[in-house]
Design a protein around this nucleic acid. Structure first.
Lengths: 341, 341
DNA sequence: TATACCCGGGACATAAAACGTCCAACAATG
DNA sequence: CATTGTTGGACGTTTTATGTCCCGGGTATA
C-alpha cells in the first residue's frame, strides 16, 4: 500500500498536490452539505475561478452534483471520500508535518522521510537520499558548498550522483578537525561528494588538540587561509545536527568542558557549536572555518538529521534561527513538534 | 494495492494519463541507454517540445541525467521504473485492452471494468456503474435515449442519479415487447431511468404473440406511432447484448424458430436481432420500434454487456459495426480479443 | 407576498503556460 | 576534418488558465 504512494510522489510530486486539492474540495463540500462556489472558495482560500475549474471537473466525474441551491457531494463522491481517507493520511501526513515545522521555525523548505533513523538503517539511507535530492535542488553552477561530518552527511555523500549542473562545484569542509573518526570527518565527506558529483574539493587539515601558539601560526598559513576564505564565501552549507552529550563523548572532549556543557544546558551540536534549549550558543569547538556569524551571508543553510533521539536537539538548533532547509525523518519531526513554543 | 489505483482513477483520470506518459518516457530511455530528444520524441510519437517539457521535469526529479551525448536514466530512475512495473500493469492493463478493442472494431470509446460478471455480482454492479457513467458522459440537454431490457440494463438504471443535465431527457424502450419478464423489460428500464434522472418517459405497450392483423392495426394506432417516431429519432441508444440461445430460451421462442436459429449459426442477440459469428443478421423478433437500419442515424450507440460467457456474442455484434461505445468487463474483453480476426 | 441574498452558468479580457520551430555551441564518430 | 546528433536557449504563436463581471433564477427570510 505504502509503496504505490511513495513511487507516485517520486514520479509526480506535482500531481499529488492536485490530488490533495481535489480531496479537500470534496471533503469541504461533504461537511458543508450544500454550498456555493463563492462561499467554498473563500473557505478553501482559492479564487472563485480556480475552484470552479475543479468543481466542474469533479462534476464531470460524477463526484459532485450541482443544483440551483448549490453544490453537494454525490453518493459515489461520498463513497470515494471515505475510501480515500487512509490514502490521504498516508500520502500527506508528512506533508502536513513539514508545513507545520516550516511555519514554526520560519524555514523555507522542510523534507520529512517516513520512519525513524534510530531504529531503521533503511530510514537512515532514505534520509541520505532526501538530503542529496535537496542539495541537488539548490545547487547551481560553480557553487561553493561547505559540509560537516557525521554519519548522516556520509549517507548524503553516498547518494549524490554525477550531474552536469554540479560540474563546477567546490566542496569544502565547513570547519577544520573536530575530533571525529576519519571516515566521518568533514574532510572525507567533502572529498567523496566532489568525486561523486564530478566537482572539486579543498581540505582543511587542522590537527586536533593543538597548542595555542601552533594553532595561531597554522591559521595564518596561506594555504589554510585560502581554504578558509573559500569556506566563508560559500553559498550553501549542508550540516548535520547532533545531541550535545553524544557529540562531546565522540569527540573525546575533556571532563571539565563536558561538565560545563552540562551546567550550561547544552543540548545540541551543529557546525562545532553547542546550543542550549533556547537555541543559545553555550560553547564552541576550537578550530578554524565557518563561524556562526558567517551563516548570515550564506544563502542556503541545509540541516540534515533524523532519529527520535535527535528531535529535541534539532529543535534547539532550529530555534537559533539560521536554517533555511531541514531534512529529517518522521520520528524526529514528531519530537520537534513537541518542542514548538 | 488495487484500491489506491482505482480510487485515483476515479478522482483524477487525467493525472493517471500523465503518470503513464512519464513511465513510458523513462521506460524508453532505459531500454535505449543513451538517446537524444528528437530520436526519442519520434519513437514515442510526441513532439519534441512536449517531450522536452517532461524530460526536463524528470531531470529535476533526479530520475534522468543529461549530458552532451544524450539523456540516460539515473540510478534512482532505474530503481523507480522497476518498482513501478507492477503498478503500471495494474493501472493500465485494462486501458491497453480498451484501446485494442476500440481499434479492432472501430469504436470511439471502450470501457472495461475489472472482473467477470458471470462469477461476481460485484463486477456486475460495477458494470452498471460504468454503464451509467458512460451514459452520463454522452447525454445532453433534451436528448431522447432508447434503451433495451435485460439485467445489465437494470443495473445501469440503478446507478443513474439525479442530474440537472438530464432533466429534459426522454427515455423510451428501443423496441416493443420482446417477451421478457416484467422487471427486465425495456419499458420498465426506461421508466426507472426517467424517474432516477428526473427525465420523462414514454412506453411501448405491444403485447407479445399478437396475430398479424392485430399487430398491423396496433402499429397504426396514433399513440403508438408517436412513441415509435420518438424512438426512431433518438440520439442515444443503450442496449444489452446476449447469447442467442439464452435469449431465445428466455423469450420462449418456439421450437421451430429455435432450430432455424441454430441452423443459421445465430450466436448473439441485441435489440431484438440475432447475429451470426460474422455479424450478419439471421433473424429478427416481430415487434415495433427501433430498426437496425435506424442505427445509422443514431449518434451514440452504447452496448453494455459482460461476463466471459458473453464474450463471443459481443464480438459478433461488434462485427456488425453499428456500435460507438462498448462497456464490458475484463473477462468478456479477453474473450472478445480472441475473436478479433 | 415581497425582498434581499446566494446560487450556477455564461461571458470576456488578460495573464500565463504550453507548444512548434528554429539555431548555436558542442561532443562523438567515422 | 566533416558529419551527425546532442543539449540548451530563444522566440513568436497558440492554447489554456485565471480574475472578474454579470444575469436569471431559486430560496429563505422578513
Amino acid at each position: 500500500m505504502r509503496e504505490i504512494l511513495d513511487i507516485q510522489k517520486q514520479l509526480m510530486p506535482d500531481l499529488m498536490d492536485i490530488m490533495k486539492k481535489r480531496y479537500s474540495i470534496l471533503q469541504h463540500i461533504l461537511v458543508s452539505g450544500v454550498v456555493g462556489r463563492r462561499t467554498l472558495a473563500s473557505s478553501l482560500d482559492m479564487t472563485e475561478r480556480v475552484l470552479r475549474g475543479e468543481v466542474d471537473f469533479l462534476k464531470e466525474l460524477g463526484l459532485l452534483e450541482f443544483d440551483a441551491s448549490g453544490m453537494k457531494i454525490s453518493e459515489s463522491g461520498r463513497q470515494l471520500l471515505e475510501d480515500m481517507q487512509p490514502i490521504i493520511k498516508m500520502a500527506f501526513g508528512l506533508t502536513d508535518l513539514e508545513d507545520s515545522i516550516a511555519k514554526a521555525f520560519n524555514l523555507s523548505n522542510v523534507i520529512i522521510v517516513p520512519g525513524d533513523s534510530d531504529t531503521s538503517v533503511f530510514t537512515k539511507k532514505e534520509l541520505g537520499r532526501a538530503g542529496a535530492a535537496a542539495l541537488r535542488k539548490y545547487i547551481a553552477k560553480d557553487d561553493i558548498i561547505a559540509v560537516t561530518g557525521g554519519s548522516t552527511m556520509a549517507q548524503i555523500a553516498n547518494n549524490l550522483a554525477l550531474s552536469s549542473s554540479m560540474k563546477g562545484s567546490l566542496f569544502v569542509p565547513a570547519r577544520g578537525g573536530l575530533g571525529e573518526s576519519v571516515d566521518m570527518q568533514a574532510n572525507t565527506i567533502a572529498s567523496i561528494m566532489a568525486k561523486k558529483t564530478g566537482g572539486k574539493y579543498r581540505l582543511l587539515h587542522v590537527p586536533d588538540h593543538l597548542g595555542e601558539e601552533a594553532y595561531q601560526s597554522l591559521i595564518q598559513d596561506p594555504q589554510i587561509q585560502e581554504v578558509v576564505d573559500a569556506v566563508r564565501s560559500c553559498r550553501i552549507v549542508v550540516h548535520g545536527i547532533g545531541d550535545a552529550m553524544v557529540m562531546a563523548r565522540r569527540r573525546k572532549v575533556d571532563a571539565g568542558t563536558t561538565s560545563s556543557l552540562t551546567a550550561d544546558g547544552a543540548l545540541a551540536e551543529a557546525l562545532g557549536y553547542y546550543f542550549d534549549r533556547q537555541g543559545n550558543v553555550v560553547h564552541k569547538m576550537p578550530t578554524v572555518g565557518l563561524r556562526l556569524e558567517d551563516l548570515h551571508r550564506v544563502e542556503v543553510v541545509i540541516g540534515v538529521a533524523g532519529g527520535k533521539s535527535k528531535g529535541e536537539a534539532i529543535a534547539s538548533v532550529l530555534r537559533h534561527g539560521q536554517e533555511d532547509v531541514l531534512v529529517t525523518d518522521e520520528a524526529a519531526a514528531l519530537e520537534i513538534m513537541k518542542h514548538v513554543q
